[in-house]
Design a protein around this nucleic acid. Sequence first.
DNA 1: ACCATATCGATAGTGAGATATCGATATATC
DNA 2: GATATATCGATATCTCACTATCGATATGGT
Lengths: 214, 214
Amino acid sequence: MNKKVTLTVQALQRMPYYLQYLRKAKEQGIESVSSTSIAKDLKLNDVLVRKDLAAISTTQGKPKSGFAVNELIDNIEDYLGYNNTMDAVLVGVGSLGRALLGNDEFEKYGLNIVAAFDTDESIVNQIISGKQVFPLKRLKGLVKRMHINIGIIAVPGEFAQDVADLLVGSGIKAIWNFSLVKLKVPDHVLVQDENLAASLAKLSLHLRDEMEKN
Amino acid sequence: MNKKVTLTVQALQRMPYYLQYLRKAKEQGIESVSSTSIAKDLKLNDVLVRKDLAAISTTQGKPKSGFAVNELIDNIEDYLGYNNTMDAVLVGVGSLGRALLGNDEFEKYGLNIVAAFDTDESIVNQIISGKQVFPLKRLKGLVKRMHINIGIIAVPGEFAQDVADLLVGSGIKAIWNFSLVKLKVPDHVLVQDENLAASLAKLSLHLRDEMEKN
DNA sequence: ACCATATCGATAGTGAGATATCGATATATC
DNA sequence: GATATATCGATATCTCACTATCGATATGGT
């Protein structure tokens, strides 16, 4: 059973970093870590780390030694649901879609892409990275039959809303959206936007600032 | 010339959405838009939109009509540097790396990947999506000669810091980091972390919450 | 030409998240 | 076994992004 805690969005986003850090520590045979040292290595405030860990940890940290690595790892994995996998379908087998299909890291994070969909005749029925590509018209049936909860949108912006509507109509509960379009969906459906353009914008601005210094 | 304004990080991240929205409006022949309507469609607060646009716009918005679409597009593109391209190198030609190489969208955002690097002998010297893959040892020479400013890290976590060190040593000014490792770099180097695991965490939690309702 | 109203910019208020501080406590050292 | 100290949890404070409100103004409709 999971503890009934509600982390802030930001805290939640830090969890994968903690997990990565803890796993690495475990590999090195370290059995307990302090929030201070985590904070230093991850460039965070130590109180912040302590609050984050306190929120998901079943046991308290001990003065002088800190938190038990193994337990923390279990707690975080449990909280993030890395143990019970989520099934997903992917729509749009372009360059980005192929990458997502081929990314074996996702399984570690509890995501399992069971099938892909596209309208392009030349791609349909192929098997890419071990996943079959189906024609889009078969999406609804498949999603309903297999009780899939997550849809990944990797199509060009102009088709994103249509695909979203289709996914929602098929009973999907969450959408991972790689297009730049703000999707209109019912309240109970979560849209997680992945905004690569925003990252590029930050890079661009930093470079401009650096240039202007010289 | 760019205006000397400093947007907050969050505002900066919204810019690509505004841009996408405005381009679509332009396609439909719309000449002016109000911050109210943008806010409604993008699910943002109208005052927020107004502040964002005021920060980058050269002209003011007019009551009853709003902002001139064409001008706003120019302003945002100018601000985000979509017009003068940034050259980048990519390190790590795994599934993710291939995807990034193949993503033709990046060019629209001003990013141009000029070369890729990997240590895997079987990949080196191949041409993938029109970009040549070089052995990692040649990175420093190439980056220095071509004055590349951006490095993209798409290698497994355990090698990420080493690659970062190499990039920094080659004179790179910004790193786009797709690994989950918090990189240690000098102050003048910007690290932009792309945290897909965090997105998955959000999806996972939302699903769990939805399940518990029933 | 006038009026109603949508939109704007500016200022003040709110709230979530991050940080600083403090006393308590367990452990390592002597 | 006593003491010094690193670490913890709790509370208070601060910060900054976002939101709500208000008067001003230009434009479309009558």
